[in-house]
Design a protein around this nucleic acid. Structure first.
Lengths: 342, 342
DNA sequence: CCGAGCGCTGTTAACGTTAACATGGTGAGG
DNA sequence: CCTCACCATGTTAACGTTAACAGCGCTCGG
């Protein structure tokens, strides 16, 4: 048909206004659910929107509102099970709250990388920031390098500085240790995560506190770094020591390394040594033997972090800028733990 | 000091211009590396930028340029090792190219979820979209539900529709099978990934083609779903069959399940059955026994996908809207494979 | 019957940036 | 010495949206 030019450019608010026979501002009011619009006008506008398949340009909206529709996520170790799961929770919750998610992964966890990541995030004019599994220094650095007025929620962060959501690491560690003590072990060894990680430290503290509460002597911590390799090395070390009957690994990957080291040294699990992990990765039930472990709900943590952030952004949470939430883990019993050898 | 009001609002281009004693446009020219700026002017501007810690507002820039600084990523199964690694590569490469990343994870992989995810992405005015590990139907759906002019690059997508970057799955499968044939196995069984996944299918095809090229009979495919559980079930099934001497699992998690099933049935690996995996997850070296596997470079795939997308966005790749790239995996030999029993 | 107030809509001016065009100066070639 | 070209910079006008204010007509109370 002559004159029937194909519109190549997506519709803008003016096109909608014209088609509906109203002003731009009225369309804007409909879009933003302002009260004072007559309902037949509203219907006409909504009709025009559908007809033109109009979607508001979020950059223009963000520009004038001085706030974007994006939540910035700063995440470390995104291939690991915990952070990855948390990210899933964050993604779902953000969508439910009407926000997009933009992710940046710092090169390393030193201050300058983090400041850099924050600057990148800030440049995207995010409404708020969620930080996933920061190291000890990270949350403080993040706070100072973020522009005024951009709220920050951290997952597993240093407690007093910033709003945060945590797995109740100490409770999880307690479950693990109490389970082993209940089975009759005299004490429990611990292979920890990296020293500069707060979640790792919380597991160490929980482990030690539980042993001491039971009047047991806490053996020295064997330091790992989350990797199966470090668990393996720890296992070789523990295999040399007499009297080791139970080991609590700070995550399942290190527990896997332990199992392998004990197997290699001919030490049977659980008959001679009990091993318990943390995380309940999907594979944990298929280790040899199937791993008893503590299951934290990482997704829930992500969801709650976003919920907190959104309420902070909307200014409703302003009263309490450093609130804390805890998510309780559960113990998953499999066959890598048993009563100690006679 | 009286009068020394703290600036609460971040610096804008006008502040920089004023401090440097030039016009906004000159600052803009410096920011965008335009040639015609005298070098001492440039230095003064750069100085002012540093001094004010100025960062351009990406929403304003995107608005006037009619194109955003964001790459949209649609990803499935983000907790899995492969997709998660690819995401890391995408993140790094995007940053290097000066783009941000916004992620959306569809609820499921059916058409409406994908269309929905695309609408979400489109609403964020992304410059282009990377789709990670879509199912067979996904890339087609994605293409039609994306606004005109927004390029799409897929990782492991159906070949002819869309630009894509792939792991050379067939080559990886060939390496695995040839390794086992070389060791002297008569044939190789295969535990596959989900049927609707293209990467899984490519591994099946490569496995079958290699066996046939060697004049061997390909046994029936045992269908899995990537999970250790499905590998375990497959292992129980294979344990019942006589004459199984070598199994190629389509990923390491299923291989773990196989190892566990064989262990449970008293079948020794590798003495009685050889097992090979795919992915080389960081834990694979700590399975019992350490897993021989094929290592694909997922990060590289992510990086290349972004590179392709960026060239498409910049219009330089317009000549070839459906190019394909392949990334070659490598074989990692450990001790889960050996010569067949006598 | 008049004025105040309110419900609905429109007009104008931002938000921060860059594209397009304008301007003034400097150097080279005739 | 004049002109043309080009380099360096400035000025103006967008991009698409919403906030702030203005105005119109109606209702309701005195």
């Amino acid at each position: 048909m002559s004159g029937a030019r194909q519109r190549t450019r997506p519709a803008v608010i003016g096109d909608v206004a014209q088609l509906a026979g109203v002003s731009n501002q009225t369309v804007s009011r409909v879009l933003n659910d302002h009260p004072n619009v007559r309902s037949d006008t509203r219907d006409r506008v909504l009709d025009a929107i559908r007809q033109l398949n109009y979607r508001p340009n979020l950059m223009a909206r963000g520009l004038v509102r001085q706030r974007s529709h994006l939540i910035g996520v700063v995440s470390f170790d995104t291939v690991l099970f915990g952070p990855a799961s948390t990210l899933v929770g964050i993604g779902r919750a953000s969508r439910d709250h009407g926000y997009g998610v933009t992710i940046v992964t710092p090169e390393s966890s030193d201050r300058s990388s983090i400041a850099d990541a924050m600057a990148t995030i800030a440049g995207q004019a995010v409404a708020g920031v969620v930080m996933v599994f920061p190291s000890r220094a990270a949350s403080a650095t993040a706070l100072v390098s973020l522009p005024e007025g951009v709220p920050l929620v951290a997952v597993e962060a240093d407690e007093d500085i910033v709003t945060s959501v945590h797995i109740d690491q100490a409770a999880g560690a307690r479950m693990a240790v109490e389970h082993l003590l209940y089975l009759g072990h005299e004490t429990v060894w611990h292979v920890s995560g990296p020293r500069d990680r707060l979640d790792a430290q919380a597991r160490v503290d929980g482990w030690r506190a539980t042993l001491e509460a039971a009047g047991r002597v806490a053996p020295p911590v064997i330091a790992g770094d989350w990797s199966a390799e470090s668990g393996y090395q720890a296992g070789l070390e523990l295999a040399e020591r007499p009297g080791v009957s139970a080991v609590f690994a700070a995550n399942d990957h290190m527990a896997l390394g332990l199992l392998r080291a004990f197997h290699e040294r001919g030490i049977r699990v659980p008959e001679e040594v009990s091993v318990i992990g943390f995380d309940d990765i999907p594979e944990a039930g298929y280790f040899i033997p199937p791993l008893t472990t503590v299951r934290p709900d990482h997704e829930e943590v992500g969801r709650r972090a976003v919920a907190s952030l959104v309420s902070l952004v909307d200014g409703q949470g302003a009263a309490d800028p450093a609130a804390h939430e805890w998510v309780m883990p559960t113990l998953i019993r499999r066959t890598s733990t048993a009563t100690p050898p006679r």
